[in-house]
Structure formats: structure tokens, C-alpha cells
Amino acid sequence: MSHSQTYEVIRPVFRDLIHSNLTLARIATGHVWTEGPVWFPAHETLLFSDIPNAHMYRWTPHGGTSLFRQNSNFSNGNTRDREGRLLTCQHATRSVVRTEHDGQLTTMADRHDGRRLNSPNDVITRSDGSIWFSDPTYGILSDLEGHKAKPEQEGSFVFRLDPDSPEPTVVSRDFVQPNGLAFSRDEGCLYVAESGSSHDPDVPSLLKVFDVQPDGGLGKPSDFAAIDKGLPDGLRVDQYDNVWCSAADGVHVFSPDGELLGKVKTPETVANLCFGGPRGNMLFITATTSVYAVHVNTKGAVG
């Protein structure tokens, strides 16, 4: 892609967030549907999922791509917890699991009110040690990204799992299919993607935002921004509180007020993204069959 094809500048301030002389680099390809990128600074390693192939991969700047987990149980979203451990949403087990420092897996959540979760999709953490995740039905709709099954939950919810809690608490019932999650820098706001238009064109392709209450609950949602190409999936917040969100034509970047500043254009539909790299200023993009990377002029809100 040429420089002019890589970026769409809508507001002049977007130029301050990118290096307009740089283009996307495709750092991995040959996959089916890449998802869940997460950067581990201590190892200078990017991990990501290929959901239909049920594999997880690692990428390093000097070693390229290699297999990280042979059987990932159709892993989707990944994140680091505050102790540097990997948290993963698994469709096959319909659970959120933690990879301990010795490599063992611990199930963090797989049920609510005695019934199995749908298929946890994206996961983030908060500084109080709580784990937040979305639970749409994508992993049980067919055998492509999990195992086809009937939902046991009454809907598709957003959950919070408190430290030492035996099971997660529903914090939002406001979505058809909740997807990507991200906190603002001060953790006072939670952004959630509504991706229900994947199966129902009448569902608006929106990012919604909630105020996080002192007790960990959420206020009423408001519409933050609309995606004008495709639907929102994974998202991240940068150090200036801008929201970077996946879409059909690339990564859409919104100001803290929800104004579309510009786009990082990609040749494939984007599923998710994260900030990382040795200096934290690289944008990694999982987009259908490939993973792309480009240096930007910002870093993630969460290190």
C-alpha cells in the first residue's frame, strides 16, 4: 500500500497521531481469521489467535511467526493481567482462562447462575484486579469458531469478574452481540462495541460508552460513535484517550468526544488491534488472513 492508501485524514489532528511517510507492513499471513493481539513487553512478543484453526501464534521482531499453542480451544480475545499473565477467551470451553507463569491453565469463568456462558469474546482488566469480558454467541452459532450449541444464558451480556469471586456479575444487558471492550485512561469510562449487525442488519454498528461507578457497576450507556464501514469489533484507547476501533476498511480513530479523526486503511477486514513493540509505539492489526503493523505517534493507555 502507498502512503496515500494507508491513511485517510478526516481531521488535521489525526496527522499528529501517525507518521504519514510510513506504510503498513504485513508481518504474518496464511491464516483464516486472526484475532486477539496482545503484546508482552518482557518477551518482546506479540501473541494472536487464529480462531477457526484453533491455534495461537507468537511473533517477534527478529524471529517472525511461530506456533504458540497447538490447541487453543478456538481462542479469541487475549489480554495481559496486572501480573503479566495471559488471559484468553476460549470458544470451545466457553470460558475465560488464565495461563499461569508455569504454563498451567486456570479457568477464571465459565458459568453464570449455574448455566454455561455463551462464548466469551474479548477480555480486559482493571487496576482493581477485576476481569471484564463480553459474551456474545458467535462461538456457538456454528462449528467454524467453536462448537454449535444452544445458548444457556438469557442473552449476550458484558460481565465483570471480581478478584476471588466464584463467578462473574452481569454489568450490561444492553447489547445484541457485545464485542470489543476498552477502558479510558482513568478507567472512568468503558467502551463496548455492538457487533450485532453481523447477523441482523437492523442493529446499528455502534460503539457505546458507560460511566463506571465507584462500586464497579455501570451507568446507562450512551452512543459514542458509529462505524461507517462494516461493524466494530476489537478496540483500544491510546495515551491521549483517543479510541482506535476495528472496521471493514481499517482502523477508525475517534477523539475522546467521539469525533472521527481518521482511518488507518487495510486491505483486509480488521478484527482487532493493540499497541506494542519495543517502545510501545507500534500498532498491530489482526485483519482476516493476516497481521499488519505500523509505527504510530502514540502509545496505548495501558502499558
Rank of each mutant, 00 (worst) to 15 (best):
M1E: 12
M1K: 07
Y7H: 01
I10Y: 04
R15T: 15
L17T: 10
L17G: 09
A28S: 11
W33C: 04
E35A: 02
E35I: 03
G36R: 01
P41K: 03
E44N: 14
L46M: 03
S49N: 08
N53F: 07
T60V: 11
H62E: 15
L67C: 04
R82H: 14
R85L: 10
L87V: 13
Q90N: 14
S95Q: 02
R98C: 05
R98P: 00
T99F: 15
T99M: 11
M108N: 06
A109S: 06
A109V: 07
H112S: 05
R116D: 08
R116S: 11
R116W: 13
D122P: 01
T125V: 15
D128N: 15
I131L: 14
F133N: 09
D135H: 10
G139V: 11
I140R: 02
I140Y: 04
L141S: 09
L141V: 11
D143R: 09
K148C: 10
A149D: 13
Q153F: 06
E154N: 14
S156P: 02
F157A: 02
L161A: 06
L161E: 01
P163Y: 14
E167R: 09
T169R: 14
T169D: 00
R173M: 09
V176G: 00
V176S: 04
V176Y: 08
P178F: 07
G180I: 07
L181Y: 09
F183Y: 12
R185Q: 15
E194F: 05
S197N: 10
S198W: 07
S198C: 10
S205I: 03
S205K: 06
K208E: 12
D211W: 07
D211H: 13
D215L: 08
L218D: 08
G219M: 03
G219Q: 03
G219Y: 04
F224G: 05
F224A: 07
A225G: 09
D228F: 11
D228N: 12
L235M: 12
R236F: 00
Q239A: 15
Y240W: 13
N242Q: 12
C245H: 02
D249V: 05
G250P: 00
V253E: 00
V253H: 01
F254K: 02
F254G: 01
D257V: 01
G258L: 06
E259V: 11
L261M: 09
T266M: 01
E268V: 01
A271C: 07
C274K: 00
F275N: 01
F275Y: 07
G276H: 06
P278G: 11
G280P: 00
N281Q: 15
N281V: 05
T286M: 02
T288A: 09
T289K: 13
Y292W: 09
T298M: 11
K299L: 11
K299T: 15
V302G: 09
